[in-house]
Structure formats: structure tokens, C-alpha cells
Amino acid sequence: MTFYKIKRLGKKLPGGSMAEPVRGSLDVVLKQDSDNSPCCVYSEIVALRLAQRIGIPVAMGVPSVGDGGVYFASLVVGGLSINLPNITARKMEGVAKRYPSDTAAIFVFDVWILNDDRENNLKANLTTSDVHLIAAIDHEQTLLGRYSDMQASLEALHNAEVPARHPLRNHVPKVYINQWVKQIEALSDQSIEDAVILGFSIGGVHARTQKKLASALKMRRDILSKMVESTCS
């Protein structure tokens, strides 16, 4: 369970409810499509929907609308009064030792969605405190956002490209990797389609592209163990 940081705790809502609801707001990082990242919001939403289906420890988020258009609001991880820094590449071995199953999940998931941008995009507690805290963040450069051109990203996904520089590739125990490969392999076609084909367009990502992505992910699911092996070798 990952907790999220409350930005402001407001007054209790009027009413006689037993739970006595309280208004509050959470800290988020707002992400938006840009010239360099034209399908950022879509990639974030779909990566999260896929991760939730499997149980990958990723930071939660929600699509949101503001003055500047559509955003992906990624909740700030930790539930701490002072935010945590990101985990650098050198610390990945330590993360894998402390959280072997979680890191295996993140690694296998990254291979599946073609995420080669995990360095500095992971929050984890590596201190002497026993707080269990690990969460993957930032999936902007995955799926259709792997390259700045959506078609190039789709092509890479179809071509079984793997995240060759993934910082966890040499650190996660194989036994955990195999478990998570099986979890993803067990995903049904329908489940993948439900996560990827949203039924509406986001940014420049329309139904046709979403269907192509679902197809690529189904193909990658079927060869996932080989792709993971190829990433680790």
C-alpha cells in the first residue's frame, strides 16, 4: 500500500454521517502533452490502467482538466510531510535487494510497455527506517510516447524492441521475474483492450491508434518471457 501526501486538510463536511468526511486536497504532479511528448497524458493513463490490472506498484493518478487543457495528475508518493527524492541508477541494486518482488514487477512491466526511462523515476525508502515504500512514477516515455513520434513508438512496440538500458535489468532475482511474467501472460485480450481502448480520444490519440496499441501489447504479452530474457542478457 502506498500512501499519498495530503496538501491541505479542510473542514469537516456538514452532515450526520458516521464517517464524518473531511475536505482535503492531495499533492499532485500535473503532466500535459507537449511538442516533445505529444501523447504524454494518454501514455500515463494507459500505463496506470494496465498496472492496476496486474498489481504493479505505480503511483496513482487521474486524468484532469484545467485551464491549460487535459492533464494527467500523478499523486505525489509517500504520504510524507517532506517529499522524497527519486532513486538514481546507482541505488537500483539496493532497491532490488530490499524490494525484490516489487522491483521484479516494475521491471517486467517496463519490458512489456517498453519503458527505458526508469532511472530517476522510482520512489523508494532505502534508509534504516522500516517503512515499506516503493512506487514507480512517470510513464510518459512509454507505449506511444517511447519516441517523440507516435508511429515510430508503435513500430518499436510491434518490433519487440526492449528497454536495453533498464537500470534494474541485472539486479532482480529471476524467480520473481518469472512470477511476474506469468501474471502478465495471464492477462486476457479483453482485459488489455479495456485498459488501452478508452472509447474516446485523448490529445492526438484516436480509436484507431489505440486499437493498434492494444494489438501490439497483446503480441508483446505472448513473447514477454523472451523479451525479458533478451533484456537481461
Binding site: L80, S81, I82, L84, N86, N125, L126, T127, T128, S129
Partner: peptide
């Protein structure tokens, strides 16, 4: 800010 979150300080030191 909460003093019991001293370990976050350690995380920052490592970073």
C-alpha cells in the same frame, strides 16, 4: 513537517 520522518532526511542525504 513531522520530526518522526527523520528517515526522509537520510533519503535526501543519499540523493
Amino acid at each position: 513537517r513531522r520530526p518522526e520522518e527523520w528517515w526522509v532526511l537520510d533519503a535526501w542525504k543519499e540523493w
